[in-house]
Write a protein that binds this DNA or RNA. Structure first.
Lengths: 123, 123
DNA sequence: TGAATATATGAATATATGTTCATATGAAAG
DNA sequence: CTTTCATATGAACATATATTCATATATTCA
């Protein structure tokens, strides 16, 4: 199975090794582009140690922005920005009580995802 | 519980709301800094749609670099760079056969992590 | 040995991202 | 209404990163 135009300077090899049916199966197994971007966007939220620390804090109890900032030794602004990212990814939810806003975990996938990550790096 | 020096221009609030014992519990629950960086480094690997597509391809069968490049419509170089990242994170392994290098999944955590991600975004 | 092929890699560039700083918004108290 | 406190947000800056391009390495075959 040759390339159609083997004179063009394409940065790939000349053969395809896999059988055509395997290739078809692989291509049909690929999710839509939109889903792929949603997935990578979600994992990008976990790709920052500050956000992971926030999630670990919220594993223990719901907490307001300023307490999270104090516990983690960071500014209120930095934490607020990251909480915004976590909330837009629907990983945390918020609840207002007067001037204070309390954040907590939105669902249980966070635990599973982080635990699987932990298992992987402890090998 | 006031700040020790309330005249300094710190970007946090004046009170800590949580009880001291809760605060102690939260702080002791926080993993070491090294572990946090390892975790976020791992998830950063999943934070790119090209790498996720590569993983989806390898869910189906082991494959050489140039076939992956053809299937995904990308250059050999781009795929090789990303495979390097996936391999250094121990998410894929490689096997040489002559001039060809075949890549495959290294363990099963990849499946669990991606599936949990999928579950989360499909809600 | 030398040519051909598959893969790896270093440098460069364009883009994305986390924190800081200044400031805005929102709520309670005086 | 004004002040105060907690939170949110926009702009700026420094750093990280994905792809491209050129080239190096590794293996096979003549």
């Amino acid at each position: 199975m040759w390339k159609e135009h083997d004179n063009e300077p394409l940065d790939t090899c000349d053969f395809i090794h896999v059988h055509p049916d395997v290739l078809a199966r692989v291509q049909s197994a690929l999710p839509d582009e939109d889903l792929l971007y949603d997935l990578s966007d979600l994992f990008r939220i976990f790709a920052d140690s500050t956000r992971i620390r926030i999630l670990y804090v919220l594993f223990e109890c719901e907490m307001c922005v300023c307490d999270i900032a104090q516990v983690l030794g960071m500014t209120q602004s930095a934490i607020s920005h990251q909480l915004r990212a976590l909330k837009s990814a629907k990983l945390v939810k918020s609840r207002r009580e007067g001037k204070t806003v309390f954040y907590s975990l939105a669902d249980s996938h966070v635990h599973t995802i982080i635990n699987q990550g932990l298992e992987h790096i402890s090998e």
